[in-house]
Design a protein around this nucleic acid. Sequence first.
DNA 1: GTAAAACTGAAAATCTTTCGCATCTTGATC
DNA 2: GATCAAGATGCGAAAGATTTTCAGTTTTAC
Lengths: 149, 149
Amino acid sequence: MAETQQDGESQLENQQIKDAGLKVTAPRVKILGILESCGKRHMSAEDVYKELLSQDEEIGLATVYRVLTQFEGAGLVCRRHFEGGQSVFELNSGEHHDHLVCLKCGRIVEFVDPTIEKRQAKIAAENHFKIEDHSLVVYGICSDCQAKG
Amino acid sequence: MAETQQDGESQLENQQIKDAGLKVTAPRVKILGILESCGKRHMSAEDVYKELLSQDEEIGLATVYRVLTQFEGAGLVCRRHFEGGQSVFELNSGEHHDHLVCLKCGRIVEFVDPTIEKRQAKIAAENHFKIEDHSLVVYGICSDCQAKG
DNA sequence: GTAAAACTGAAAATCTTTCGCATCTTGATC
DNA sequence: GATCAAGATGCGAAAGATTTTCAGTTTTAC
């Protein structure tokens, strides 16, 4: 029973979850839906959990972590460890990108820079490393926060 | 009493600690000594604590964290958050550098790349961010681990 | 429909790091 | 040297983030 509302959007999510090799369950559909429609591109597990609560969903925080971790393993989302305790998750847009993070307001700007990518590849090669991944985060103060003093 | 052995090296450490504006205490001298002579450039608080234990020093883990945090504040060491739970600390060599980390054996190679630094500055400027700091970590498999399969 | 495999919620457990507090040291001063 | 206030330390407890355990539930393939 409890047939989760099967509107158009959910259908898409269902497919993404299936393609990831996971069973289609209410928590997964709901969490993926939140990541896709919530506006914030970077959410902590706690953020997702709170959003679920505000939608009166009875999904535990442990499940949120489990689902996000599975999504990560399936390549649906990326986990980032910025400064400050918790990790944040973002939908995997397919192409890798780096981040500019405001230390005051937490604002996050994404960017891609081919020159940097190339240099990284070069450096890895020089050291005989096979690159698997990389993380570049530039911390600073955004214009708004600079203005506010 | 308990005059900590005042050999040549300790004298240097004492001065560094004094210069940092901290009182010269046994735990601080000992911890700084370990960081300087331990061979590993990147140590977690736990690593330092274990090394202390193996030297029969009665220094608590809380103190290790406190001292490392103070050293960080004083600019003597840098704290890094790589993948995997704990932070690692390294002596501040003065010039900023980035890291290449082997996902299998944990080996760490440091590097500096002016081109990347410049691009970062440019990107920050384009987005009207005032850079405070940055963290670039390239994860991969080192040659040894590639060889081992 | 049925059953096996996978999933879930809630609580408990882990892990890393910090805090509270009573006690002890350091460093400046007599 | 002896004295003393400020600052440190050790220990256990606490905190915060994330994971595991476990018993009950749901999904999916047949």
